[in-house]
Design a protein around this nucleic acid. Structure first.
Length: 106
DNA sequence: CGTATGACGAGCC
DNA sequence: AGGCTCGCCATAC
């Protein structure tokens, strides 16, 4: 059941926490999982507010932009995000994550 | 309560 | 292909 209660932030973190290792989801996909078909920006807002304390529990680096783009304003740095993704065996096609191979097919 | 902001997305030029 | 504008959603002020 979709978490309806609680802050949007908590719900976003919960969804992100569910992204399997070696896979990535787009902001838009996370938004849809929360029932916000066009709330990709809201998801970004929530991740932007991700407490450093939860950085270990929430795989924020598995959330990328549409088409597999890495957001220039991603957390500690887009370079770190890319490094962490590659560390999970995620392939890149140039500057984009290979969604065909690692994207969530839902 | 109106305006501004932003880890977005799709469309246009 | 690259860059800009507009639309969406939830917060902050």
């Amino acid at each position: 059941m979709p978490a309806r209660s609680g802050d949007l932030f908590a719900r976003v973190y919960d969804v992100v926490r569910g992204i399997p290792r070696g896979h990535v989801a787009t902001y838009g996909q996370v938004a849809r999982a929360l029932g916000m078909a066009r709330g990709a920006r809201a998801v970004g807002w929530a991740l932007r507010a991700l407490p450093a304390r939860l950085e270990r529990r929430v795989p924020w680096h598995r959330v990328v932009g549409a088409g597999g783009r890495i957001s220039p304003r991603a957390g500690p740095g887009p370079a770190l995000q890319r490094r962490r993704l590659q560390a999970e065996g995620i392939r890149f096609k140039g500057a984009l994550v290979d969604l065909a191979r690692h994207g969530i097919s839902a």
